[in-house]
Nucleic acid binder design. Sequence first.
RNA 1: GUGGGGGUAGCUCAGCUGGUAGAGCACAGGGUUGUGGCCCCUGAGGCCGCGGGUUCGAGUCCCGUCCCUCACCCCA
Length: 415
Amino acid sequence: MRFTAPRGTRDVLPPESELWRRIVQRAEGLFALYGYKEIVLPVMESTDLFVKGMGEGSDIVQKEMFTFEDKGGRSLTLRPEGTAGVARAFVQHNLGRSGLPVKLYYKGPMFRHEKPQAGRYRQFHQLGVELIGSPHPLADAEVITLCNDFFRVLEVPAVELLINSVGDESCRPQFVQALRSFLLKREERLCPDCKRRLEINPLRVFDCKVKECRKALEGAPRVTDHLCEACATHLRSLMDYLQNVNIKFRLEPEMVRGLDYYTRTVFEFQKVKGGPQDTLAAGGRYDNLISIYGGEPTPSTGFSIGLERVAAMLKEGAERNEEIGVFVIAIGEEARKRAFSLVKELRDRNIHADMDFMERSAKAQMKVADREGYPRVVIIGGEEIEGDYYTFRDMGESSQRIVTAEELYGLLMEG
RNA sequence: GUGGGGGUAGCUCAGCUGGUAGAGCACAGGGUUGUGGCCCCUGAGGCCGCGGGUUCGAGUCCCGUCCCUCACCCCA
């Protein structure tokens, strides 16, 4: 094999691509039901857009971006996530001009230069939703409800919702300070990575899996205990709204997310049976992002779903969709010509029909029809041409009979 | 970027202590002058990841390299 798909990218081939199509169809149906309209965005943006949005210190910006210069010397980056682009478009086109909120969704490939492994690719696909313009916890409740519905409608097994609040500009710095001074007292017990995290973003220490670090965290201050009154109320309201519509969740005070732009609400939908790359969808509130991009302060909230990861969950139980339609078998050149015309006629009537293109024997054509799962077959040979009829065979019943063209259309129309 | 495992037919893999490659499935043809599933026969298909070394001889040993995979970091 001479060429292969670039590292961390892959081809989604037929039966799996059908599964993808079903997932995307269902998702888009739900998004529409909730009043979201699609926004189609470029897959590349100015590098600065992501640096300013996700934060200089974030791992994505530091080491995971596909960045290159165009011929005019501008630095561009293949989008590692979708929210920044939506926010940029919102500001660029003044999308808030005819009233808020603005409800948008996007789908498509994202790019991160990471070492690939199970459930992680350099090019992966997301379905994302943004509710732009409302600071209200009801907005968070709406997007979480939508995401929850997505997993419910697709019957993705064993998924749980985790939520948390990371506070806002008035309480987060104080909490970070409190956490830092707590950890500084125990710095000796932390692993080298965590010592580094202590400087950059102490919240990350919560993510560490090293036993010693977990012990050192015992008794550490919790975000939920340090929220300012406004943030605490916001979180309580959100939980109340979710309970009110019977959505189960777990408050996870140690959950932090990797992007700097999150404020207050953050949430993840995860596989219950954890393991690596167990996050299927994630999101949160970003009240400052749009003003960072030069727009009016526009509090917003949203999430994105990892298509590969959801598809992997459904792959096992993916029932083979029932084949329908008819396969037309031709014996001889004259019959082939008639078969081609019949197939076209059937397709014109919106009936799924196909035939052989390999000059196969009648027997071989039957095999193909069987292999492809056609429940019915039409046979055209010398006898049929002479008598001006078709032989119509039911593959399940192993029975066949002679029919006229009109009878055939009738039989196939019924399904 | 760091570490573990692996690269032999389209797929899943076998190939012992070195002697120029094999199975199952899939595919194609046949067993029926025009008829599927099961069965039988036949066939096609292989730079044994790539490069170098040792050797009379390397899929097999050594070195390098690329790729895949799993995990860490981090994330969808």
